[in-house]
């Protein structure tokens, strides 16, 4: 349940940004979560409600944008989405691939009123 730690960091960042907007309430918070991370959306939602309680974020919607895994072949440069975590280029069969997407754990934006 490391989502609690992740959410603590998210609220640290939110609080820093909210200092520039006194008096607002937060309506929506958007996260970008890569499919290769171990962050579980349901756990994030649970932790979000817990942290939001009694703050200007209470009642806000949590939007989670899931980012699929993408790999790029070092040999033929082809980009693809791996099937079942098989990190192999579907074009040339090479195992020399780099993950270009899917490790995101980002606080994207917030909507305030």
């Amino acid at each position: 349940m490391h989502e609690m730690s992740l959410m603590a960091s998210i609220f640290d960042i939110l609080t820093r940004h909210l200092e520039d907007y006194p008096g607002v309430t937060v309506k929506k918070v958007t996260l970008r979560i890569g499919s290769l991370t171990n962050a579980v959306p349901e756990a994030l939602e649970f932790c979000f409600s817990a942290f939001a309680q009694g703050t200007v974020v209470e009642g806000a919607q949590l939007e989670i944008i899931q980012v699929p895994i993408k790999i790029k072949c070092r040999e033929c440069q082809q980009e693809s989405e791996p099937v079942e975590f098989h990190f192999r280029c579907p074009g040339c069969g090479s195992l020399a691939v780099d993950v270009t997407q899917g490790r995101e754990l980002a606080l994207e934006s917030m909507e305030v009123e």
Binding site: L6, H17, V24, L31, L105, A106, V112
Partner: peptide, 14 residues
């Protein structure tokens, strides 16, 4: 009003 943040959640740890 939408406010862009675009910050890695693990930035402080990193």
């Amino acid at each position: 009003m939408e406010i862009a943040i675009k910050t890695n959640v693990l930035a402080t740890n990193d």
